[in-house]
Amino acid sequence: MQRGKVKWFNNEKGYGFIEVEGGSDVFVHFTAIQGEGFKTLEEGQEVSFEIVQGNRGPQAANVVKL
């Protein structure tokens, strides 16, 4: 599992990016966020996640808020 901080997340569009220290930013879609109810992330929030290869490159999967 990787760890990072949410760079930004757009609730209306349902996606954003996670900053990884020493690495490239990783795309995150709301469907990758674990948990119940409305799935969103806050700027600066710490998360753990896996990186998978999506249609447009690397993206976050199994995102857990820390």
Rank of each mutant, 00 (worst) to 15 (best):
N62K: 02
E12P: 15
F17W: 06
P58C: 06
G44A: 08
T40E: 10
I33C: 05
F49P: 00
G16N: 00
F9V: 03
E50M: 11
L66V: 15
K7R: 08
G4R: 01
I33P: 02
G37D: 04
L66K: 09
R3L: 13
K7D: 03
N11R: 11
T31G: 06
G14R: 07
V64C: 15
Q45N: 12
I51C: 15
R56H: 07
R3Q: 11
V64F: 14
F9M: 03
Q53G: 10
F9D: 00
A32I: 01
F49E: 00
E46N: 11
S48E: 15
N11E: 10
A32D: 05
A61Y: 14
V26L: 09
G14K: 07
S24T: 13
E36L: 10
Q2F: 15
Q34T: 12
E46L: 14
G37Y: 06
G22V: 11
F38E: 06
L41Y: 02
I51D: 02
V28L: 05
G54I: 03
A32G: 11
P58M: 13
S24W: 10
P58W: 11
P58Q: 11
G16H: 00
E21V: 14
V26M: 08
R56W: 03
G16F: 00
E21G: 14
V26W: 03
G54A: 10
R3I: 10
A60S: 04
S48G: 12
G37K: 07
K7C: 12
G37S: 07
F27E: 03
F17I: 05
G35D: 12
M1Y: 15
G54S: 10
A61V: 07
M1I: 12
Q34P: 07
I33A: 02
I51K: 10
E43P: 13
L66Y: 08
I18P: 00
G35E: 13
F38M: 06
E19H: 14
E12W: 13
N10A: 08
F38G: 08
K7I: 14
G44S: 10
Q34C: 07
T31Q: 04
T40S: 10
E36C: 09
P58K: 09
G37W: 04
N55Q: 09
V20L: 13
V6E: 00
A60K: 00
V20E: 13
V63C: 13
L66E: 12
E46Q: 12
L66I: 08
V26Q: 04
V20N: 10
Q45D: 05
R3W: 05
G22R: 12
E50T: 14
G57V: 03
Q53M: 14
K7F: 02
K65Q: 10
E50K: 12
E46K: 12
I33W: 02
T31A: 04
